[in-house]
């Protein structure tokens, strides 16, 4: 049964990479059931994250947000700061797709805090870029300028010309 769980996860991932997102969801849901059966929380966490990603490409952003929230919850329980940061980044982007810029900003700020804590300059740059765009969408140009300047500074530092 445990091997079956891993096989479902691999089938979900393979279908995802092939662009078969409906099938990917089906397999990751099966993987999730088995992870829960075994009380395997890291596997449960992976399934949530994989499901969130699949729903993004199905255009079902509300569903994606729900799964990313569960990913975030488990990442916190498992004390995995890197995954917590990634979940916040995903949630920020998902709420941007949903055009809920207030929530997008909340999550991008959370991502920024963790990226700074982990000394992840690339992550920090992404967070600033995203925040600049979200504040622009809200018409808050002072904050947008602040984050655009930080984005430029970090991009120069990491040598990202684009």
């Amino acid at each position: 049964r445990a091997a079956q769980g891993r096989a479902y996860g691999n089938l979900g991932n393979t279908n995802y990479l092939l662009g078969n997102f409906r099938k990917a969801v089906m397999f990751h849901e099966q993987r999730l059931l088995i992870a829960k059966e075994f009380g395997d929380r890291p596997a449960e966490r992976r399934a949530y994250s994989n499901l969130g990603n699949s729903f993004i490409f199905l255009g079902e952003f509300e569903m994606a947000a729900e799964y990313y929230k569960r990913t975030l919850q488990l990442a916190r329980q498992l004390k995995d700061r890197a995954v917590e940061a990634q979940s916040c980044y995903s949630l920020g982007n998902t709420y941007t797709l949903l055009q809920d810029y207030g929530k997008a900003i909340d999550y991008h700020l959370k991502h920024l805090t963790i990226a700074q804590e982990l000394n992840d300059r690339v992550g920090e740059g992404r967070a600033c870029w995203s925040l600049g765009n979200a504040y622009t969408a809200l018409g808050n140009h002072d904050q947008a300028m602040h984050f655009a300047e930080k984005h430029l500074e970090i991009s120069r530092e990491v040598g990202d010309r684009s």
């Binding site: 991932n13 797709l97 622009t136 969408a137």
Partner: peptide, 26 residues
């Protein structure tokens, strides 16, 4: 509003490009 929507797309597009290849391995 339309212009702002276009502006916000670039950072999200970049994220989605990375997401395409992002799977959590067993």
């Amino acid at each position: 509003v339309q212009r702002m929507h276009l502006i916000q797309v670039d950072s999200v597009q970049r994220w989605m490009e990375d997401l395409k290849w992002m799977t959590e391995c067993e």
